[in-house]
Design a protein around this nucleic acid. Structure first.
Lengths: 343, 343
DNA sequence: AGTTCGTGGGAGAGCGCTCTCCCATACCGA
DNA sequence: TCGGTATGGGAGAGCGCTCTCCCACGAACT
């Protein structure tokens, strides 16, 4: 059954009674070939079980028909952090979108973690060797090194999330500010008046934007000052921040946490202090990841359409690979308020 | 900066004043080369910024130095299911372990989803084209097609979880039966006497084993009959199963759920029925995934050392790639009881 | 009839490596 | 002195493709 010496183009050509070039043309639909000959070739391919050898093709086309997904975890470079990121449903949704969008092209993405400078080097070398044509960069941190390094070796990349400083890189992002505004508007609309905020790490543009939008929203509803505590997007940081805010603002009645995980931590901290959610305190999260849906009470949250955003990243990258025009593009998606029990 | 015509072996050889063969030998440490010449070559590599072209190398070695991670979702072939699997922390932990174990070899795994027969074909073709040398197969379902198909095209694979029928494939698994026994022993040790069980899908060997061990454990503690309800590993199925069991066995005081997600669903269902956890009902989960740690109450659970198991899968595969001896191996890991609040 | 196309096929070079030969040199024991 | 044997280097074939030429042929024009 297993024909160890895999059939080559030459073999197919012999069986079909044509030249190698003709077979190649049929397979790649690269030039007109008489229909009857196409048929003969196709039958020969079938009969031999031929499958083109990617290495040989890549060698001459200088294309690998592969893309890499680079997860740039963190500048903090504790090795746990990036590892944990992979278990974050946020990442899973993104990955689902990427794989789905790549599948029609027969591309399976290579997954890499960039945790430190050595990794950046290894990853750049990987691309330079011709293992992949382009990169999808997933980083919540404003990491700037990789896109430039990859551009140096002629590999375009598309980022998830706007880079901190504008560079020659396409990206896909959410209207975070609008999301923050929506959270404030909703909390105000259900009669809350003493809001607080648990932000993400403020060196991240997205975290800044969400917070800015939230404050803007409250200002519009007559509340010019919002007590705030910075978190790190994680469950524990949300719990800790909530405790601190309860100390500082005992009569708070609304909290906006910049991630669902932090919202979950906050809700548990509120419970520990005898506050009921949503009766005493309303909580709004961000992302609409699994914890928002599965925890009790369900978390009212600002949904990021991550699957769609991922598909858009793929589209941008493939477009750029098909036509390496020099214009970086960006696409911004709208957040959606998802109502559950917590607010 | 970007030397578009990437330097080739030829270029390095010219700079170093040696032949192509010698440069190749130095780079691949494939034969003795005089130390001073090694030094000269190394300097030339440095100077030119040379990086070997993987396609050219693969063409002659017939090795890609790449591996694929195949996530075989389900035979149920609802497209959502596999997508959701990626957001499951279970998968994230496995992936973390795989990537970590592959990194020292400079390999970045290609990720693929097998949701139906067409996918199986596409994936097999991908391997046959020489895109990857071997596969890491992650499937909780006892899918048998892919390992055989891959073996047919000369690609070894290592499975996560024992296949339903023994085949020519290596695998890594957990002592599920022992895990079930541990759950029963713990519940008995804290004085529970009316146990029930929420199993995983019983066509999955792992689910059967966990259940068998659980019943065995209770039999040993004087409880020969355990009411049971089958779930699907998901949150919703756990919630539903718990409701059903509460109807059938109103005075139950202990439940073993075969996944943490189901345990979480069960705990919420118990709460809805006015039962306190763990005072009225003790709950033990399985996996030790994020929900077990983050939900309230924290879920006492049977931990699978997924990262270590993943690393072992990688080791088995790489060994087999380095030396394709025909003996499939299997490695079984021990579960660990992790105590939290729920039992 | 001769010229000019357009169309569809083949020949063959060459992508950048690895690896098998082969050869030059140095060192050894007889 | 000579054959034998490591040791380390170079020459060159060839992995399986793509793609540029080139050519044969028929149709359409002058």
């Amino acid at each position: 059954m297993s024909a160890d010496p895999s059939p080559t183009l030459e073999d197919v050509a012999r069986v079909a009674g044509v030249s190698r070039a003709t077979v190649s043309r049929v397979i790649n639909r690269t030039r007109n070939v008489a229909p009857e000959i196409q048929e003969v070739v196709r039958r020969a391919v079938e009969a031999t079980g031929y499958v083109p050898n990617r290495a040989a093709r890549s060698l001459v086309t200088r294309r690998s028909e592969a893309v890499g997904v680079v997860v740039a975890g963190t500048d903090l470079s504790d090795s746990l952090n990036a590892g944990q990121f992979l278990t974050d449903p946020f990442f899973g949704r993104l990955l689902t979108g990427i794989i789905g969008a790549l599948k029609p092209r027969g591309i399976f993405p290579a997954l890499m973690l960039a945790e430190n400078a050595a990794d950046d080097l290894a990853i750049t070398a990987y691309f330079k060797q011709g293992n992949a044509d382009g990169a999808l960069l997933i980083s919540t941190y404003p990491d700037e090194r990789l896109p430039a390094m990859l551009a140096d070796v002629g590999r375009p990349s598309v980022r998830f999330a706007r880079p901190a400083s504008p560079g020659p890189v396409s990206y896909v992002d959410l209207a975070h500010r609008e999301g923050g505004r929506m959270a404030a508007a909703h909390l105000a609309s259900i009669g809350r008046r003493r809001p607080v905020a648990i932000t993400g790490p403020l060196e991240i543009p997205a975290a800044q934007e969400r917070q800015a939008g939230y404050e803007e929203g409250w200002a519009r509803h007559g509340c010019p000052f919002v007590p705030v505590c910075e978190g790190g997007f994680t469950y524990d940081s949300g719990e800790r921040a909530m405790k601190e805010l309860l100390d500082r603002v005992p009569d708070l009645d609304a909290v906006f946490a910049a991630s669902d995980l932090m919202a979950q931590g906050a809700i548990h901290a509120l419970g520990d202090h005898g506050r009921r959610v949503p009766e005493d305190v309303a909580v709004v999260g961000f992302d609409d990841s699994a914890p928002a849906r599965l925890s009790r009470p369900g978390i009212t949250t600002i949904r990021q359409p991550l699957e769609e955003m991922a598909a858009e990243m793929v589209r941008l990258l493939l477009d750029r690979l098909d036509d390496p025009s020099p214009e970086p593009t960006s696409v911004i998606f709208d957040p959606v308020l998802v109502l559950r029990e917590s607010a």
